[in-house]
């Protein structure tokens, strides 16, 4: 399965690299585009020293941790939301008869290594924040755990978004509000949001476990919303809890798929 993924991704990567100048330009500009979010954070902190109780470096830590996971998923899984195009064009039928899982075919569809620049940019911000913050070294084991958790949560979200498109072929853009919206939501400490919104993204859609709950543990801080401290470690449970329904929704979507009818 992994070797198939690598083979397909490499095939698309070679296709993308055929136009070298364009490829290099896209890699650079994609990184710059992703960095605009950092620019916004820097402009905000040019006007204040603390945002909802969090300092400049703490916000950059939360941003970096979430964005490494988000950009990783955007590169390796994000293309599954192209499914509506394949359903409309009828090319999804061809994917179903090939001896490779359609999910892997879609995840590698139009795979572009230029997005690696965004992961590097997010990782650089995370590394800067970890170096700038005076953190307890015994708590740093949580950083890789939270990144893996975030990857699983975002990948599940994208899979759910793709499954929804079996019924929502007319307005595929609507799922962007959930996938890219989640990426935007997790860039800031959740203390900026209203209590009800935070409840929703903790208990209904477990986005709080991407960087907020584990991030509070790494930073050694209490939750301003007063959740008990054992919730800092529930990330992997929440990730599996979202991955399962995503997997079931995807299988259901595939089973009920009836082609375009022609």
């Amino acid at each position: 399965m992994v070797s198939t993924y690598i083979l397909l991704a490499w095939t698309w990567a070679r296709a993308a690299m055929a136009y070298r100048a364009s490829f290099a330009l896209m890699a650079v500009l994609g990184t710059v585009l992703a960095a605009t979010d950092v620019a916004v954070i820097l402009v905000i902190f040019a006007n204040t020293t603390s945002l909802a109780g969090f300092s400049h470096d703490e916000v950059l830590f939360l941003y970096g941790a979430s964005n490494v996971a988000f950009c990783f998923c955007d590169m390796f899984v994000g293309n599954v939301d192209r499914i509506s195009r394949h359903i409309k064009a009828g090319t999804f039928d061809a994917m179903l008869i090939r001896p490779v899982s359609p999910w892997i075919q879609l995840a590698t569809d139009n795979f572009s290594p230029t997005r690696a620049g965004r992961i590097a940019q997010a990782a650089a911000v995370l590394a800067y924040a970890l170096a700038a913050l005076d953190l307890d070294a015994r708590r740093l084991w949580m950083v890789p755990v939270m990144i893996v958790t975030g990857v699983v949560i975002f990948a599940s979200l994208w899979t759910l978004a793709a499954s929804v498109q079996f019924v929502l072929t007319d307005a595929p853009e609507v799922v962007n509000a959930f996938t890219y919206g989640s990426g935007q939501l997790t860039q800031y400490p959740f203390s900026v949001y209203a209590r009800d919104l935070v409840r929703g993204v903790t208990y209904a859609l477990p986005l709080a476990f991407v960087n907020w709950q584990p991030g509070l543990y790494v930073l050694g801080r209490d939750d301003p919303f007063g959740t008990p401290s054992f919730m800092r470690f529930l990330g992997p449970v929440a990730a599996v809890g979202l991955a399962l329904p995503a997997w079931l929704a995807w299988r259901r979507g595939i089973r009920h798929y009836r082609s375009t009818g022609s």
Partner: peptide, 23 residues
């Protein structure tokens, strides 16, 4: 669908700006 996405991002950005203006 675009209006929906713009509205969702509007809500998220609004909270950040509210936090900034409270500070």
């Amino acid at each position: 669908a675009g209006a929906f996405t713009n509205s969702v991002f509007g809500v998220l950005r609004a909270y950040v700006l509210i936090a900034l203006w409270e500070a």
